[in-house]
């Protein structure tokens, strides 16, 4: 069996992992810079948007939804009956639910 050169193996592993970390760390900074530029641009374009928080938007949307659902449209007048198959269980069994005829003894 050949002798393992542990120092070079550990060096490859350590430098390899460090390189992955460094490269993706670089990506973090690049994307942070990216994000800062674009967020800044968006704020400049629509300053009023930042004043409306998520909860306010949700409240407006809920009010609109309630308003629109209160107005009845003409319905299709079509009834659809779905057939539902349930797995057997003693709880839904008609045999156990209906009155049983008593055994007739002679």
């Amino acid at each position: 069996m050949t002798q393992i050169d542990w120092s070079s193996i550990l060096t490859v592993a350590f430098i390899g992992f460090s390189l992955v970390i460094v490269m993706l760390l670089l990506m973090v900074f690049v994307m942070k810079g990216f994000g800062a530029v674009f967020t800044h641009q968006r704020k400049k374009q629509s300053p009023s948007q930042s004043e409306v928080d998520g909860e306010t938007v949700a409240a407006i949307m809920t009010a609109l939804r309630l308003f629109s659902s209160a107005r009845h449209d003409r319905e299709t007048e079509m009834l659809t009956i779905l057939s539902i198959k349930r797995a057997y269980s003693p709880w839904n069994s008609k045999i156990h639910g209906l009155t049983q005829m008593p055994d007739y003894r002679k």
């Binding site: 992955v20 970390i21 490269m23 993706l24 760390l25 990506m27 973090v28 900074f29 690049v30 994307m31 942070k32 990216f34 994000g35």
Partner: peptide
Amino acid sequence: LIANPKSFMLGA
């Protein structure tokens, strides 16, 4: 990932 670049570090 673009919205939260810190995720890159978790991937690393």
